[in-house]
Each structure stands twice: as C-alpha cells, then as structure tokens.
C-alpha cells in the first residue's frame, strides 16, 4: 500500500468514525444502552454497597482497607471497555447486515480497512467518554483514589488493547445472529455470563476452576484484572490467581484476540444478509 493510499484509508476511516459518532449520538436509546449503562451500575452499586473490602491473609495484615467503590470501579470500567465495543459493534453491524446498509456501503469506494478503523474509533471515543465520566463521578461522589503514574499508563494500554478486542468479538458474534431483531438477545446472553465469570462482580478466585478457564479465553477477565492493578493497592494481587496481576499475560491475550480474531472475523465478515 502506497503512502497516499494509507493516508486516504486513515482519513476516510476518521470520517466514517465521525459519521458513526453522530448517528449514535442522535439515537437516545443507543446512547443510553451503550454509554449510560455501566455508569448507572457504578452509581447503583456504589450507593447501595458502602462496606469496606477485607484484607487478603497472604499479605500479612499490612494491607490498607479499601472501600467497595474502589474495588468495584475497576470491574465496571472493565465492563465499559469491553462491553461498549462488543455491544455497539455487535448490534449495529447485525442490524446493518440485515437492512441492506452494508450492502449499499460495499458498493462505494470506502476501503474496508477504513470501515473497520471507523468502527473501532467510534467504540474508542464512546469508551473514553464513559471512563472520564466514571472517574469524575467516582472521585467526587464515592471518594475513589486515582491511580499513580504507572497505573495511568496501565489504564491507557488496557483501553487501547481492550476496545479493539471487544470490537473483534462484536464483529465475530454477528455470525451467529439470525436476524436483526435477535441481535440484542444474542449479544446480551454471553455478555452477562462473561461479566459474572470474569471477576467483575465476584473475585476470580471464588469461581470454580472450569469457569476461570472459560473466562480466561475471553478479553473481559484480563481487562478487569488489569484494572484492579490500577485501582487497588499492590498487596491485593495476593487475591488474584497466581498471586499476581498477570499484566504481561493480559497484554498477550488481548493482542492475540486483536491480531488473529480481527483477521478472521474481517475476512469472513458478511456485508449483505438482506436477501
């Protein structure tokens, strides 16, 4: 690909992203489900559950106690990072496959790479927006401690890897969506299950090993664990599997999802199921 072509592809990807942002922004229902849902969870849980989290025994009693909100913000931000992209792409792509929007788009000179860049960019923008709202709410309303410099850095790479990984699953799940009407149900079922087995609401260690393994295949578990390293004191890693934050492994799993998953799901993507 020549330099001029690369510039064109990126430029058109950017404009396709703007088009998508605008479309979603103008649909109150989509905006609510995609953007407001995790924020609502944060508010409800943090308001209801005000107890403090106990000390892991392995740390020898030197661990500072944290509020429930401090613990929960990590998990729910993980849901925002993974879920926004997964829900957004899964639902909108399925609908557009069935109503002929993508059929029409496939007849234009929009490069396919630009199309997918635009989608990931859309998910990334709305995710960052949510995270900012959550952080402000968390600090102002629930007294959450902000991460240190290393924590911010971790947060940033988790967002940059987590969102595309969520997009990959969103693109992939369209394959098993039988009709536009079925899209929300087909997408919500695995999403809800993943939330419960990925350490968002319950600690990973409290889950049966088999469920831990299943969760370990998907991105959400690694995103949530990485975020706990950002928001919890270091000693809390003793409560994690292997008594470590497993950040390297998280980066590898997310990268594999992006490289292998994106390639496969893009190559087998169906542009037209309207017939």
């Amino acid at each position: 690909m020549s330099a001029a072509n690369t510039v064109r592809t990126l430029r058109l990807g950017f404009f396709y992203m703007l088009l998508n942002l605008k479309t979603i922004y103008r649909q109150p229902a989509a905006l609510f489900f995609v953007v407001a849902f995790p924020i609502m969870f944060l508010v409800i849980f943090s308001s209801l559950l005000t107890f403090e989290i106990g000390i892991p025994e392995e740390a020898g009693g030197q661990v500072p106690v944290v509020t429930f909100s401090q613990y929960f913000v990590a998990g729910i931000m993980g849901v925002a990072i993974f879920g926004t992209s997964f829900n957004l792409l899964g639902t909108s792509l399925a609908i557009q496959q069935f109503d002929g929007t993508l059929k029409q788009l496939a007849a234009t000179p929009l490069p396919r790479t630009s199309f997918f860049i635009g989608l990931v960019g859309t998910a990334l923008t709305y995710t960052v927006l949510q995270l900012i709202i959550m952080l402000i709410l968390g600090v102002v309303a629930y007294g959450i401690d902000l991460p240190d410099a290393a924590g911010w850095l971790t947060l940033i790479w988790i967002v940059l890897l987590g969102v595309p990984a969520g997009c990959v699953l969103g693109i992939a799940i369209t394959k098993i969506i039988p009709s536009a009407n079925a899209a929300p149900a087909v997408i919500q079922a695995p999403f809800i299950i993943l939330q419960f087995i990925s350490g968002v609401f319950f600690t990973l260690a409290s889950l049966p090993t088999a469920l831990q393994w299943i969760a370990g295949v998907f991105p959400l578990r690694w995103i949530a664990q990485g975020l706990r390293s950002v928001f919890l004191p270091d000693a809390y890693r003793y409560a994690e599997p292997g008594m470590s934050w497993q950040l390297e492994l998280a980066a590898i799993v997310l990268a594999v999802w992006i490289v292998v998953g994106l390639g496969l799901s893009v190559l087998t993507f169906k542009w037209d199921r309207s017939g």
């Binding site: 088009l19 479309t23 103008r26 029409q104 000179p109």
Partner: peptide, 29 residues
C-alpha cells in the same frame, strides 16, 4: 466501485443523519 453508482431496491439511509451529512460523507469517497 470508484466509477459506478448503485441504487439498490431497498432504501437504507442512516436514520440519524440528514441528506446533506450523508452526501458530504459520500462525496469524500
């Protein structure tokens, strides 16, 4: 695709966008 225009049997404008916005985007392609 760069040299043909296609009108399919079914209309599918993106509901949230105006004709001007759709066309401005299409023109960029």
């Amino acid at each position: 695709n760069r040299r043909v225009g296609i009108v399919l049997q079914r209309s599918t404008p993106m509901e949230g966008l105006t004709p001007r916005e759709m066309l401005n985007f299409s023109a960029r392609l």
